[in-house]
């Protein structure tokens, strides 16, 4: 350090600054803060406990074929019919992944294509492109994103439908910083440009993780007056519970929805149950009879509207290799 500062005049001029920076970064690493996780995954634990993202109705069959493990190459055929909310569809999907690249594609029977491309430059720096391509005009979407995770912070930039001619589109920037070993705070800004009009809004985030990482509380305040608060707790080895409160306090609309969910992870099955303040009770059971065959049953009763929905599904996996062979090779860790 001393030899470089004497040899270069620039280094000697900058040395007070670099010293301060060095001392600051040493002080920062001495705090021993861990990475708070990304803003996108702020409520990941709650989402995986609740069955909102897993619920389906009608009949469903998913046939997945693992053609290769390293690199991962998988094709899926999904059939769904008799749903009350969605028309019957057939969906073909393909996934290719190795340790630095993830490619996924989906095409449905109407010819809509969903694609995703993730490239991990390093383990903490990932670029993502997501596209939705449709025959109808106006249903196309492209999503460019870069994710960077530092030692105690996460940064993310996103552009939604950026137009190369007038720079229109939606731009997101988010930052989440660990302040203590438990608490992380951050913000997410949205900049919207469309035909000469621009609009910027910022929402604020906070995440508190229990010391044993067995409970997580998050809050997100949006400028429109919406507040989302979640709480997730690991009750035991196999049981997780999550609560979610969504408040809207806008001049036009005042609304609140609370959701309570429970998830059991048993050896051969996963069971999720959920209750919310709109009067809905729902449950989903995923039972694995064999490593390659799973059976799903779901049900929902809306007590206030007096309506019910049920669903049934099968998931069949087949591969060119025997389960023993597949178990020997560790699957790749693609950038997600």
């Amino acid at each position: 350090m001393a030899s470089t500062s004497s040899s270069s005049p620039f280094a000697s001029v900058a040395s007070p600054l670099t010293n301060v920076y060095d001392r600051f970064s040493r002080w920062r690493s001495a705090l021993g803060l861990s990475n708070p996780g990304t803003v996108e995954n702020l409520t990941k634990e709650v989402k995986s406990t609740h069955l909102t993202n897993f619920f389906f109705d009608g009949a469903r069959a998913d046939l997945a074929k693992n053609l290769s493990v390293l690199p991962l190459f998988q094709v899926t055929h999904s059939f769904s019919l008799a749903s009350q909310t969605a028309p019957p569809t057939y969906n073909f999907g393909a996934v290719f992944a190795n340790n630095s690249v993830l490619l996924t594609g989906n095409v449905d029977s109407e010819g809509n294509v969903n694609g995703r491309f993730n490239h991990g430059w390093t383990a903490t720096s990932v670029t993502k492109v997501q596209a939705q391509l449709s025959q109808q005009a106006g249903h196309n979407m492209i999503h460019l994103e870069h994710d960077y995770q530092g030692s105690d912070y996460s940064v993310n930039f996103k552009a939604l439908n950026p137009s190369p001619t007038d720079f229109g589109g939606m731009y997101f920037a988010s930052y989440l910083q660990s302040v203590t070993k438990n608490l992380a705070i951050g913000f997410e800004s949205l900049h919207h440009r469309a035909s000469g009009m621009t609009d910027t809004s910022t929402s604020y985030l906070a995440k508190y993780t229990g010391s044993n990482k067995d409970w997580i509380a998050t809050a997100q305040l949006q400028p429109s007056g919406a507040l989302q608060a979640t709480y997730w707790q690991k009750l035991g080895d196999k049981v997780e519970a999550a609560a979610d409160l969504h408040l809207v306090n806008a001049p036009q609309r005042r609304d609140a929805v609370a959701t309570l969910g429970l998830k059991y992870d048993l050896r051969m099955s996963t069971f999720r149950a959920q209750l919310d303040s709109t009067g809905k009770v729902s449950a989903l059971l995923e039972q694995r009879f064999a490593p390659t065959f799973a059976f799903l049953v779901s049900g929902e009763i809306d007590h206030f509207k007096n309506a019910a929905r049920v669903g049934m599904g099968v998931m069949i996996e087949s591969g060119s290799m025997s389960p023993e062979e597949m178990g020997m090779q560790p699957p790749p860790q693609p950038p997600v």
């Binding site: 053609l67 290769s68 690199p71 190459f73 094709v75 073909f92 393909a94 996934v95 290719f96 490619l103 996924t104 594609g105 095409v107 294509v113 694609g115 596209a131 391509l133």
Partner: peptide, 10 residues
């Protein structure tokens, strides 16, 4: 896109 993934995977 889909043919490309299948080609790369194959």
């Amino acid at each position: 896109w889909i043919p490309f993934i299948i080609y790369v995977g194959y």
